[in-house]
């Protein structure tokens, strides 16, 4: 039986292939954008508070900073005890239109040696981990100069 694709958090990203994007919310009164999404109250202290509606975030941005995880993170991060630990890069990307920095894992195979502050990155669909029945999906950052 094929595994069911399930987002690691529901409502944070949507779309397939080239249409994949992060999903935030925008306040109808002041225009502030929130990711992770705020669905109840606008957090701008100068705003009376408007409706918060879903908005797709820009697909590309530039690296604010980056690092990696040379040691296995503790739970609730899911790792396989049978497999050797493989570090992955974490990238904080600044989206120009929304003026927000969003953290994410780099696509597998991209290491800190491939990255630089200011480099352009694109958000792409990724797999966080798989278990018996589920493929847990997430977002990854990929350098725009690297083919998918």
């Amino acid at each position: 039986m094929p595994r069911v694709l399930t987002p690691v958090v529901s409502g944070w990203f949507a779309g397939d292939g080239d249409d994949f994007h992060l999903v935030g919310t925008r306040c109808s009164a002041c225009g502030s954008v929130f990711f992770p999404r705020e669905d109840v109250f606008c957090r701008n202290p100068g705003c009376e508070g408007g409706d918060l509606t879903e908005t797709p975030l820009s697909g590309t941005g530039r690296i604010w900073s980056y690092t990696d995880t040379r040691y296995q993170p503790p739970s609730p991060y899911v790792t396989s005890p049978e497999l050797p630990w493989r570090p992955y890069a974490l990238v904080a990307v600044e989206l120009e239109a929304e003026r927000i920095v969003v953290l994410g894992q780099a696509v597998p195979g991209v290491t800190v040696a491939d990255l630089a502050v200011g480099m352009e990155m694109r958000v792409v669909p990724g797999v966080l981990h798989e278990d018996a029945h589920t493929t847990w999906t997430t977002w990854h950052w990929r350098p725009t100069g690297v083919a998918g």
Binding site: S32, V33, F35, N44, G46, C47, A97, I100, L103
Partner: peptide, 9 residues
Amino acid sequence: IATDSAVAV
């Protein structure tokens, strides 16, 4: 996981 957005303020 992300900063505040500075788009409105």
